[in-house]
């Protein structure tokens, strides 16, 4: 039964398809749009369409970009001897925010997960290998999520990459900065112990 209006219901349906949005929130958002100025609604609609039209994947690193190749791949100041492999474009964003990493990226587009039907051929692994065949790459940093799938993918890639002769590293998993040791949870602490390094 439709209590409001068909267009509101339609918009609610559309919002509810977004991740993390349940039906109640979707309905609230739809009603908020009803109250918005027309200009703001038009701007929102335009922004949505323009994202879809303009954004594409970089042909080199597979990050999202408006110009191909992306601004990281074309930036002459970046260190071209290091490639950091990540799962998703959001991971590039996270690493860029640190302002610490000056090398290049490679976005896999996910991690190995047989349950979700994701195998090696569904990830951009071939593209990665192709990049490595060009000279000058000295180190590959595997920066995948610290979950079961990320770890399996790390293992898979390291087996594939090590015979090629370059340095293969993975990011450390351990304690978050700014927390006291006593407040760290057991699991994180034991993983941090496992990955301890000599000083």
């Amino acid at each position: 039964m439709i209590y409001t209006a068909e267009s509101v219901e339609q918009l609610t349906e559309n919002f509810a398809q977004l991740p993390g949005i349940g039906r109640k929130t979707a309905h609230r958002l739809a009603l908020f749009v009803v109250k918005m100025n027309r200009e703001d609604v038009v701007a929102l609609a335009k922004a949505l369409v323009s994202v879809k039209d303009k954004v594409r994947y970089c042909s080199i690193c597979s990050n999202i970009t408006e110009s191909d190749p992306c601004c990281i791949c074309t930036n002459a100041k970046r260190d071209r001897s290091v490639i950091c492999v990540v799962e998703e474009p959001t991971d590039v964003l996270a690493l860029e925010k640190t302002n610490e990493f000056k090398g290049l990226y490679h976005v896999l587009g996910g991690a190995l997960s047989p349950l979700d039907g994701v195998g090696p051929e569904d990830l951009r692994i071939k593209e990665l290998l192709k990049r490595l065949s060009g000279a000058g790459i000295e180190e590959i940093i595997l920066a995948l999520n610290p979950d079961v799938e990320g770890e399996a993918t790390t293992l898979y890639l390291s087996k594939l990459l090590k015979p090629l002769g370059m340095k293969v590293t993975r990011i450390a998993r351990g304690l978050p900065v700014g927390t006291d040791l006593e407040y760290a949870d057991e699991a994180t602490l034991s993983r941090a112990l496992e990955g301890r390094i000599a000083i």
């Binding site: 997960s113 047989p114 349950l115 979950d147 079961v148 799938e149 399996a152 949870d185 057991e186 699991a187 602490l189 034991s190």
Partner: peptide, 16 residues
């Protein structure tokens, strides 16, 4: 806690 984490991850790996 670390046993629980291992157990949850083990179940996931097992299914995969």
């Amino acid at each position: 806690r670390s046993y629980l984490e291992d157990l949850l991850e083990y179940r996931r790996v097992l299914r995969q």
